[in-house]
Design a binder for these strands. Structure first.
Length: 276
DNA sequence: CAAGTTACCTGACGGC
DNA sequence: TGCCGTCAGGTAACTT
């Protein structure tokens, strides 16, 4: 499900509603997630505490408590964090639930269970960086995500530009959808070897990545099958897809048929004429 | 170190 | 109707 825009939309949605709320109780399904869920630790560090911040780093939603503890939630492919009124029953695949002092419930739902949830105490701030974020590249909106950075990092690598963009230690937050869409808008073929890109092309790519992500966040993310914001609203950036999922359709720019090709094991969509 | 492969898990969809 | 194969927004642990 979620790439950076979807995680950002959830983060912003939660922030509006749960800051200042006290967690009054917790429940878990007991099902195994990709990373074992440290339920006792999560319970101890969250129940009775007050939520004082919600932020995003890479594809993680971070919930910060008044004790300084940090809860890091990764949504995997199908995960979601949503807010529900008490009359809503638990849904299939709900795995963790916090009750808040205003009677609402914050629920983590994940059908494929590729998501993960970890908790760190204030004292473990360095550990947090060392465990989850140590191999994660710069945020795409940071100054470190630059033409020079990409150009230098690409030197000596044999991978394709699309795989490079989707590698989390190159840049955080870009998955299959936004890699495809950014490359289309930059006019760069996804199968190009990274060493063949000029500085001008890297520069265009930095711009289009930022534009696409910004636009997608403004649209509330992309809802293909199941993505919903914290307050269960659909995103509509999928209306703005120019290539993703459009194999066989005509390119809006030139009428050429949009192609599909597997690159690095992932479906890649592009216009063979507009993307050189 | 880089890059390719496999594994984790459920659900939706198309073909038969 | 159902069974089967394929595919899906992600990542980490393997091997090569």
């Amino acid at each position: 499900m979620p790439e950076l825009p979807e995680v950002e939309v959830i983060t912003q949605g939660l922030r509006q509603h749960i800051i200042g709320r006290k967690i009054t109780s917790i429940w878990c399904s007991g099902k195994k997630l990709r990373v074992p869920l440290p339920f006792a630790d999560i319970s101890e560090k969250t129940v009775g505490k007050i939520i004082c911040g919600v932020t995003r780093r890479a594809k993680y939603v971070q919930i910060i408590l008044n004790t300084g503890s940090l809860l890091a939630v990764h949504l995997g492919m199908t995960g979601n964090l949503g807010l529900f009124k008490d009359e809503n029953q638990r849904a299939k695949h709900d795995h963790l639930e916090w009750e808040l002092d205003d009677g609402t419930f914050l629920r983590f739902n994940d059908s494929r269970r590729f998501g993960s949830i970890r908790i760190f105490s204030k004292e473990d701030a360095t550990t947090t960086e060392q465990t989850i974020y140590k191999n994660i590249g710069p945020e795409p909106f940071s100054e470190f995500f630059s033409t020079t950075y990409l150009y230098q990092l690409a030197k000596g690598r044999s991978t394709t530009v699309k795989q490079f963009l989707m590698t989390s230690n190159v840049v955080a937050g870009i998955g299959n959808i936004y890699a495809n869409e950014s490359l289309f808008r930059a006019g760069i073929n996804p199968a190009r070897k990274v060493t063949t890109l000029s500085k001008k092309e890297w520069s265009r790519l930095v711009d289009t990545v930022q534009q696409v992500l910004t636009h997608a966040i403004e649209c509330g993310g992309s809802t293909i099958n199941d993505f919903l914001s914290a307050s269960q609203e659909r995103g509509y950036f999928q209306m703005n897809f120019k290539v993703y999922g459009k194999a066989g359709e005509q390119c809006l720019g030139c009428d050429t048929t949009i192609a599909k090709r597997i690159i690095g094991g992932r479906a890649s969509f592009f216009c063979p004429r507009c993307q050189k």
